[in-house]
Computed example of a mutant assay.
Amino acid sequence: MAHRGLAMSEEEVFADFLGRVDLSGAVVAEIGGAFPTELIEQRGVARWYSVDPNREAARSGVREVIAVPAEEMPLPDSSADAVFSCNAFQFLDIGRTLLQAARVLKPGGLLYSHFGPIWSAVDGHQLEYVSYQGRDLAFWRDTLLPPWAHLAYDREELRELLRSGMPEDLADLLVWHVHDSTTINRSFFEDYLDAAVRSGLQWCEVSASEHLDYEIATPELDSALLREVAPNQLAADLTRERGRPTSVGIRDVLMVLRKPAA
């Protein structure tokens, strides 16, 4: 496993994918998102399936949107030359998704996924797909939650802290997102590694980064309720609670796996 600065933009991720897979005449299953049809047609793709339950089923040229969860991917066995995903795996049941990817890939086919922030990160709550007063919130713009908020505070501790610096309804919404929302999968880095091993796919590359590319500047909160979180101690506490080694800090992940050749 390598640790390095990972590409952040969709364009960079797609360019890295193109450097690893010959798309001419290929069948690709995209998990989450839907790259523009004209972009993939330029690469001579035979068929591009975008599997995403949050989009409307549609077909345009070589691209077809299949509006179902990735965990229920309705493609035939050994039908795809590659599986591609950008910024989606943190929202999925990773174990079931990788098993589906292994099933639909042809022997020798490649899975390429870049995703994050994940639950082990300082901002792993990934405040997203939440609206307040008619505006969609985004974790990199609306830095309402303090570092490690999702890991270092229980429900009521977080509620009390947030209510000290913002309206109660907003504080309660954030607590719901952290503790109850089903949008994020709450998987630690080690959980992704275990799922990769269980999938039966071979590892080509797994790279990780702790880099945070924005400033977390929270509203003024009651300093008596704020905790000075030491990542090493937090990791030790989580290791004890989970009964298995658990690290914190890893934020973005590149996972490249291949189905063994027949």
Rank of each mutant, 00 (worst) to 15 (best):
R4C: 09
R4Y: 07
G5P: 03
G5K: 04
L6P: 01
A7R: 04
M8C: 04
E11F: 12
A15Q: 13
L18K: 13
L23K: 01
S24T: 07
A26D: 08
V27K: 07
V28I: 15
A29Q: 04
E30R: 06
A34F: 00
T37G: 04
I40P: 00
R47K: 14
S50E: 01
D52M: 05
R59N: 05
R59M: 04
S60H: 10
S60A: 09
V62I: 12
E64G: 03
E64M: 04
V65N: 02
I66K: 01
I66G: 01
A67N: 07
P69N: 11
A70R: 05
A70N: 09
E71T: 12
P74E: 08
P74N: 08
L75P: 13
P76N: 11
P76A: 15
D77R: 15
S78C: 14
S79C: 11
S79K: 10
F84A: 11
C86H: 09
F89K: 14
Q90Y: 12
F91S: 03
F91K: 08
I94R: 03
L98F: 06
L99V: 12
A101C: 15
A101M: 14
V104W: 12
V104L: 15
L105M: 14
L105T: 14
P107T: 13
G108L: 13
L111S: 08
Y112S: 01
Y112C: 03
H114C: 07
H114T: 05
P117H: 10
I118D: 09
V122G: 06
D123M: 08
E128Q: 09
G134V: 05
A138T: 05
F139G: 07
F139P: 05
W140K: 01
D142N: 06
L144A: 02
P146A: 13
H150R: 11
A152D: 15
E157Y: 06
E157F: 07
R159L: 05
R159C: 03
E160L: 06
L162T: 02
G165C: 03
G165H: 02
L170M: 00
A171T: 00
A171W: 02
D172K: 00
L173C: 01
V178E: 00
D180G: 07
D180W: 05
N185Y: 07
R186L: 09
S187R: 10
E190H: 13
Y192V: 12
L193T: 14
G200N: 12
L201S: 02
V206D: 03
S207P: 02
A208F: 13
E210M: 09
A217Q: 12
T218E: 15
L221I: 11
D222N: 14
D222S: 11
A224K: 10
R227I: 15
E228N: 13
A230I: 13
Q233R: 04
D237P: 00
R240P: 00
S247E: 13
G249W: 00
I250N: 00
D252I: 13
V256N: 00
L257Q: 04
P260M: 06
P260N: 06
P260C: 08
P260Y: 06
A261G: 15
